[in-house]
Design a protein around this nucleic acid. Structure first.
Length: 887
RNA sequence: GGGCGGGUAGCUCAGGUGGCUAGAGCGACAGCUUUACACGCUGUAGGUCACAGGUUCAAGUCCUGUCCCGCCUACCA
């Protein structure tokens, strides 16, 4: 045990513990339990995906919550699983097929689906093992997949239920169409991207007149589908043209000039070309005026025959070029003005979406949204951070029908059945027996559902809904959903709406939305930007615990959290520091074994022991508070500061000092404190803490049944050992030690040199404390000869000085001290104090302050001025003396 | 156009409901093989809290305005 390596090697430690946890089923939740439940369902990652930095953060936080609750005695279910991620997964498969020289259409639906399942079974393990590598304490016995039988049944059930309520219907409407993926997509999947476009001004000659009506458009190629030109009814410039027609250039078609208040007189030329089949607004105008919907694009982004012979077969983009050239040639083009504007791109493949009229299945989500709004306002569901509530409500209030059908194959086929005889459609779990018309021959709708439909059911479909199961009873509604704020509308909103619609309950009480991991420049990390950190490489290089610590430590409640490499390095140093602290204790525990039986014969009430107990108690309490409030970064910082700067920097030095005197009690307490601190840190750093915890408790476990077999189920610490009196005493000592060190450092006293220390203090209590403790502790921090403490002491010749309130420290440094340096040091301190006193006095001189501020605040200020004034006086006198001796 | 978040040390960020002499990590500088750790130890430097007003006894914190940066959202062709 004593030959632990000097440098912590995570690879030696991490693997074995995950296996140990799995074998002992520590992460398994019981469907029937008398413990209180705590449930998280994982936001399911893509089955064929790999772990990226966003997953790493999201799942680390979920693991922190899960592990913390497990230690608090909850029946914790963290339910893992994956999503079939329809469109994006198919895209990748299509790319594979293209490489093989075939295509999905060529191999057909059945074969395509076969290939998808094959690929799924090949790659399904990746993300799971990566989550395990990250340390995630999921209940793998309950892993789910959105296309599993049970979840598919849930999808069908929900669909039929909503269909029967009239909330799901088929309609022909203008939707966002992706020509690349050959499917409709919802607004949410369309990303508007600003591009440097142009405004093309085009003349449309008015029939039977010399007038040319000038229109402006960003998409000149759509003119081939124009079926009207619209002007505002009150537009004086164009009023007289209403009712006439224009001759559409390049087509020789005549289209009417109509009036519609939608037209903005101020914008462009005040005349709007109307393409009802290819623009949402034009579509609406078209409906109002009963215009022809002239389709000129094919579904995969080419021009069709109706675009005209010249253009048919061109891509959308080539067509635009040609149309502009032709217009120019024929003198219809007035000008091209640069006009940056946002254009919708499909977020999965980056293709510019094409608004297209097509028959789709829609879900009327308004009534469901209404319930979600009520639940939010009632506080049935709470968003953290709070600001997300406004965003959520705003989106819910303006929600539009959701197009749920996708012209794809990988997913849940809509449970809609068409009668082959009368073509009536109906929704049902299985093929219906007979149609109302008497026929018995049906075919199922070809389309599949949007993936978000099945993920929306995830919090309860994973637990067996619609069946009444023990799991639903025990774990549903779940406790909290943890995800990035960018997923609020995709997952969270749908889960809440579906939860209310299907189970009459909000699926989770709390939604915690964390930030997105960014690089140093605040840019969101993403593969496409090339600025992403690969979690697995990072884990290999720094260790899982270091990586997790960095993630937790940086996850402040801001929208984009930068994760510079230096943060991860800092995490690694921290793991190494902990490792070495443990190593130090374990090595010394071999020499001074901790007695199994606790006994009180020893002098246990030493200051340092009471101090570290008090500090630990405060650390425990503030850690618990931080976790309760989802303030993960606070937890990380509290534990880092305690472990490094209190436990290691101070307490272990006290321990060393005790050991030189053969007093091992402080050491045994150190082991105790570290053991408890490992428990506090375990949710963040599962592997290292388990390793150290096991080593620290190994002797105890053989003799004490109350010690658990693993830190994962060890009790979350609590303590009431806070003692401000003790901390204050220790503060005095630390301040003295700090000042002595500071003098040595600043005046370049050689390390080897022993020094004398004279302390003058009028306060008998302070003198007493210093007498008692300083002589014990100081040697641990600095080489010291003699310590003299008295009520009044003359300042020795050629000595350095530090003043702490009414206490003065003199260090005779004959022959070492440079008087000018000392003078500069004291002057600097003097000036700083003068400034502080000045500011505080100003406040005190204000009668209003004394009158209105709370008494304790006034008193604090007074005390401050008193203390600083004494220091100032002392410094003044010392400086005067220095002047005398140096002149 | 509307909304949200941010501007605090060289860099990245903390600073719930106003009140200790504004903090941390990283970096910089100086010095250390002090018997756990050089992935370490000790010390030091570094801030007009974006700007301008206001409220208050008291503002990094609250209010108003301005200027930057980022994001979300919206049918101005």
């Amino acid at each position: 045990m004593a030959n632990l390596p000097k440098i912590y090697d995570p690879q030696q430690i991490e693997g074995k513990w995950y296996q140990f946890w799995e074998e002992n089923r520590y992460f398994h939740a019981e469907a029937i339990s008398n413990k209180p439940s705590y449930t998280i369902v994982i936001p399911p990652p893509n089955i064929t995906g790999i772990l990226h930095i966003g997953h790493a953060l999201d799942n680390t936080l979920q693991d922190c919550l899960s592990r913390w609750h497990r230690m608090n005695g909850f029946n914790v279910l963290w339910l893992p699983g994956t999503d079939h991620a329809g469109i994006v997964t198919e895209l990748i498969m299509e790319r594979k097929l293209a490489e093989e020289g075939t295509s999905r259409k060529e191999i057909g639906r059945d074969e395509f689906i076969n290939r998808m399942w094959e690929w799924k079974s090949e790659s399904a393990g990746y993300i799971v093992s990566q989550l395990q590598q990250l340390g995630c304490s999921c209940d793998w016995e309950r892993e789910r997949f959105t296309l599993d039988e049970g979840l598919s049944k849930a999808v069908k059930t929900a669909f039929v239920k909503l269909y029967d309520q009239g909330l799901i219907y088929q309609d022909t409407y203008m939707v966002n169409w992706c020509p690349q993926c050959d499917t409709a997509v919802s607004n949410l999947e369309v990303e508007p991207i600003e591009i440097d476009g142009n405004f093309y001004h085009i003349k449309y000659p008015v029939v039977d007149s010399d007038i040319k009506l000038e229109i402006a458009t960003t998409r000149p190629e759509t003119m081939l589908g124009d079926t009207a030109v619209a002007v505002h009814p009150e537009d004086k410039r164009h009023q007289h043209l209403i009712g006439k027609t224009v001759c559409l250039p390049l087509t020789n078609r005549e289209v009417p000039i109509i009036s519609d208040t939608y037209v903005d007189m101020e914008f462009g030329t005040g005349a709007l070309k109307v393409t009802p089949a290819h623009d949402v607004n034009d579509y609406e105008i078209g409906l109002r005026h009963d215009l022809e919907q002239r389709v000129v694009f094919t579904s995969d982004g080419y021009m069709n025959e109706d675009a005209g012979q010249e253009y048919s077969g061109l891509t959308r983009f080539d067509c635009r070029k040609k149309v502009v050239e032709d217009l120019d040639k024929l003198d219809y083009l007035v000008k091209i003005v640069p006009h940056p504007h946002a254009v919708g791109h499909h977020d999965r493949c980056g293709t510019i979406v094409e608004p297209t009229i097509s028959p789709q299945w829609f879900m009327n989500v308004k009534p469901l949204a209404q319930r979600a709004i009520e639940a939010t306002n009632n506080g049935d569901v709470v968003f953290i951070p709070e600001r997300e509530t406004t965003r959520f409500l705003h989106w819910m209030e303006n929600i539009e029908p959701w197009p749920i059908s996708r012209q794809r194959w990988w997913g849940h086929r809509l449970p809609i059945w068409f009668c082959n005889a009368c073509n009536e459609s109906t929704a049902a779990m299985d093929t219906p027996d007979t149609c109302e018309c008497g026929a018995t021959d049906f075919c199922q709708e070809e389309d599949v559902l949007d993936t978000w439909f099945s993920s929306g059911l995830w919090p309860f479909s994973t637990m067996g809904w619609p069946d009444k199961t023990d799991e639903l009873d025990t774990f549903y509604p779940t406790s909290v959903l943890v995800t990035g704020w960018d997923i609020l509308f995709f997952w969270v909103a749908r889960m809440i709406m579906f939860g209310l619609a299907c189970t009459d309950e909000v699926p989770f009480k709390t939604v915690y939305l964390h930030g997105l991991v960014a690089d140093e420049k605040g840019q969101k990390m993403s593969k496409s930007k090339g600025n992403a950190i690969d979690p697995l490489e990072t884990i290999e290089k720094y260790g899982t615990d270091a990586f997790r610590f960095a993630l937790v430590n940086t996850s402040t409640p801001i929208p984009y959290v930068p994760l510079p490499e230096s943060q991860i390095e800092s995490g690694r140093r921290f793991t190494n520091k902990i490792w070495n602290a443990a190593r130090f204790l374990l090595m010394n525990l071999e020499k001074y074994p901790k007695p199994i039986e606790s006994n009180n014969t020893l002098d246990e009430n030493t200051l340092e022991v009471n101090w570290i107990k008090s500090r630990l108690a405060k650390t425990i309490n503030s850690s618990t508070e931080a976790l309760k409030n989802f303030r993960f970064h606070e937890l990380a910082q509290i534990l880092y500061a305690f472990l490094w700067h209190e436990f290691c920097d101070w307490y272990l030095e006290f321990v060393k000092q005790r050991l030189t005197q053969n007093q091992p009690y402080a050491l045994w307490i150190a082991a105790d404190v570290l053991e408890q601190t490992m428990r506090l840190l375990h949710p963040v750093m599962p592997f290292l803490t388990e390793e150290i915890w096991q080593q620290l408790t190994i002797d105890g476990k053989e003799n004490n049944d109350s010690i658990e077999s693993s830190i994962t189920i060890a009790e979350w610490p609590n303590s009431d050992a806070e003692d401000n009196q003790v901390e204050e005493t220790m503060d005095t000592l630390m301040t003295v030690i700090d000042n002595v060190r500071s003098i040595r450092g600043e005046l370049n006293v050689p390390n080897g040199a022993s020094i004398d220390i004279h302390i003058q203090s009028p306060d008998p209590i302070i003198r007493n404390r210093l007498e008692l403790y300083l002589k014990q502790y100081l040697p641990a921090f600095t080489r010291v000869n003699d310590i003299i403490i008295d009520e009044t002491l003359p300042k020795p010749k050629a000595s350095a000085e530090a003043v702490i309130g009414e206490l003065a420290i003199y260090i005779p440094l004959e022959g070492v001290i440079d008087l000018d340096e000392e003078k500069a040091r004291l002057t600097k301190r003097y000036q700083q104090i003068a400034k502080d006193i000045n500011a505080a006095q100003k406040t005190l001189e204000n009668p209003q302050f004394v009158e209105r501020a709370p008494e304790n605040v006034v008193q604090q200020k007074k005390d401050l001025v008193d203390r600083l004034s004494i220091e100032q006086d002392k410094l003044e006198r010392s400086l005067a003396m220095l002047d005398v001796s140096s002149s």
